[in-house]
Nucleic acid binder design. Structure first.
Length: 261
DNA sequence: ATGGTTGGCTTCCAA
């Protein structure tokens, strides 16, 4: 693995609906690994053969109707984990695996619904347990990548209109603190290593012409462990796919790493 | 403009 290693995350909002788009995107971008979220497909219905024919290995952790994550990889994957340890949960939101010396944590963080809901309490509990888990993972695997739909915009500059979003889920101080606590373990928001501009979004509401107006949020992230920072050479958002017919409301984030040994 | 859109085995819920 001495050449470039290209990693991407994409909340596809139903893998079945987006299957042609995912296959087309793999062909045009040729990532080594694509982590997807909101597959909404049970494991027995996962389209393994389609990806195999396209030259990819797959791991999946899905359920009916909601949630679900999967890893689509050029290289074989090992040591799969499909649950957050010490957290009683029926929702399929995490998939962890090794590719060579890389440890990859693919997550779909709970949305949280609204600040006064039970779902918000569940989101904060989930993030707290994720932090405990990532601390253990980092001690075992220095080359750690945590990527997925975090459902948190880290700063106001990741929000199209912070005034409108004041007091709403995805931007609250509690959620941002939970993300900060995770970063403090020794992880960095890869996108911000290369781009400090505002208005760089990964999600736009389907409603009210939000994409056309660029009314979005940056809530999908690729975190790189400190050991990987020198090797991370690009991190970009692929806005193009939001212009496709029947797009997901999220777009891919792509990072490249060099000299992974 | 307090609306609007998408996916899912649905007549509403989640995002």
């Amino acid at each position: 693995m001495n050449e470039l290693f290209k990693v991407a995350t994409w909340n596809v909002n139903s893998l079945r609906v987006r299957l042609e788009q995912v296959l087309a995107w793999l062909t045009s971008h040729q990532p080594h690994l694509l982590a997807v979220q909101e597959t909404k497909v049970e494991n027995q219905h996962f389209p393994v053969e389609l990806f195999k024919r396209a030259g990819y290995h797959v791991l999946y952790n899905g359920q009916k109707t909601y949630n679900g994550v999967a890893c689509i990889s050029r290289l074989p994957m090992q040591n799969e984990v499909t649950f957050l340890p010490d957290f009683d949960d029926t929702q399929r939101r995490i998939l962890v695996t090794n590719i060579g010396t890389l440890r990859i944590v693919n997550i779909y963080v709970p949305n949280g619904s609204s600040l006064d809901s039970e779902k918000f309490i569940y989101k904060l509990r989930w993030l707290k347990q994720l932090k405990i888990y990532l601390q253990q993972e980092l001690s075992l695997h220095p080359n750690l990548i945590v990527l997925g739909d975090f459902n948190i915009a880290p700063e106001d500059k990741d929000v199209h209109d912070p005034q409108i979003w004041q007091g709403k889920v995805l931007v609250s101080p509690e959620e941002r603190q939970a993300l900060s606590d995770i970063l403090a373990l020794g992880l960095k928001d890869s996108f911000r290593l290369f781009n400090n501009e505002p208005h760089q979004y990964t999600w736009w509401d389907y409603r009210a012409g939000a994409f056309r107006r660029n009314h979005g949020l940056r809530i999908d992230h690729i975190l790189s462990s400190n050991a990987l920072i020198p090797q991370c050479i690009t991190c970009e958002i692929d806005k193009e796919v939001r212009l496709w017919e029947k797009p997901s409301d999220h777009v891919p984030v792509i990072a490249t790493y060099q000299n992974i040994s």
